[in-house]
Amino acid sequence: MKINGPLAVLANPGAGRGRHRGVLPFVLAHLRDTGLPVEPLEARTPQEALAACHAAVAGGAGALVVVGGDGTVHLALQALAGTDVPLGIVPAGTGNDFAVAAGFGAPAAALRAIGAALARGGDHATIDLARLTTGAGATHWFGGVLAAGFDAIVNERGNRMRWPRGPVRYDLAIMVELARLRARSYRITLDGVTQERDAVLVAVANGGSYGGGMRICPDADVTDGRLDVAVVRPISRRTLVKVKPQIYAGTHVHHPAVDTFSARKVELAAEGIVGYADGERIAPLPVTVECVPGALRLLRGA
């Protein structure tokens, strides 16, 4: 696939809490060295970034390069899913889980891979995305994980808190929600087969990790045309605290309270749960999630 349009570049200057502010000028200089026109996208808010991505794709961008973390990439996916415009990722966020799943390493290595793909005329690979439909009929795309249990409840509380500022508030939110831990009643339908069950955590994954390396579904594969599902049965606060560190290694799936499944389509319903995908607030349950094979082109070799 030949790149026929300009390289649109979306950057989040606050990604990684500002640790990578110096990355963008380096990225722009490297991309301009390819001889292709480079167009930085102007966006001060997530809403402006989303609109800028859609406008770039509609306006004939040859590729979209994102400098940021999972949240910034998530915005780009809404414009790129199902199109011929490839995505390049220069990971520069607090969490870069989807970049890892998509095969982009540290910033310098990712930029080299993007440059090599451009030098080969826009060489690309394709991977799956998850298409989520809300109860109201709205559609959202995500590349990583839909959190729909204790993890989502913590995010919801943390986002409501005005103090303390920064990531510390999520640590406090975890403590508060641990004290309030209780199982919720879920209706989970996997490829048309429904089960009613109580659980404290449910996650639906296209890519296997979230939260900066927590491998909630360690066997998830972004090229297999399927979604992985992790369900944690009712457990005590002490057990949850004990199991949580195992998620980074993916060994939690061997705990007797953890069930795993695989499906092409997942329907999920529960009262009082707001789903978060790629770390972004999406919508209250119920939701339907479908794996769409090959929905995203990547600006890197196969």
Results as ranks from 00 to 15, higher is better:
18 G>V: 10
292 V>D: 05
274 V>H: 11
198 D>E: 13
286 P>C: 09
255 H>N: 13
153 I>K: 00
203 A>Y: 03
161 M>P: 02
61 A>D: 06
53 C>W: 00
301 G>D: 11
40 P>F: 13
263 A>E: 04
160 R>C: 09
170 Y>W: 01
65 V>Y: 00
288 T>E: 02
251 T>K: 10
269 A>W: 09
180 R>I: 08
29 A>P: 00
268 L>A: 02
136 A>S: 07
294 G>F: 01
43 A>R: 01
106 A>Y: 08
287 V>P: 06
150 F>V: 04
272 G>V: 15
150 F>W: 10
240 L>M: 04
240 L>R: 00
297 R>F: 05
154 V>A: 02
34 T>H: 06
204 V>P: 06
210 Y>M: 11
79 A>K: 01
282 I>Y: 09
211 G>L: 05
46 P>N: 03
207 G>K: 10
38 V>L: 11
18 G>N: 07
261 F>R: 06
77 L>K: 08
140 H>S: 10
102 A>N: 06
7 L>H: 00
112 R>Q: 15
22 G>S: 13
66 V>P: 01
212 G>M: 09
177 E>K: 12
183 A>S: 11
9 V>T: 11
50 L>R: 15
236 S>D: 12
140 H>G: 08
69 G>W: 05
99 A>S: 11
259 D>H: 08
278 D>A: 15
111 L>D: 08
47 Q>I: 04
253 V>F: 04
239 T>S: 00
296 L>S: 07
9 V>F: 07
65 V>M: 04
279 G>H: 11
28 L>F: 03
101 A>P: 01
219 D>S: 06
142 F>A: 05
119 A>G: 11
234 P>I: 09
79 A>S: 15
252 H>G: 09
205 A>G: 13
56 A>S: 01
93 G>I: 11
262 S>H: 12
269 A>E: 13
203 A>T: 11
127 I>N: 04
207 G>S: 13
181 L>W: 07
171 D>F: 00
209 S>P: 12
266 V>D: 02
187 R>K: 10
152 A>V: 03
179 A>K: 05
30 H>P: 00
29 A>E: 15
251 T>D: 13
266 V>G: 03
252 H>Q: 08
95 G>F: 12
98 F>A: 10
14 G>C: 08
210 Y>T: 12
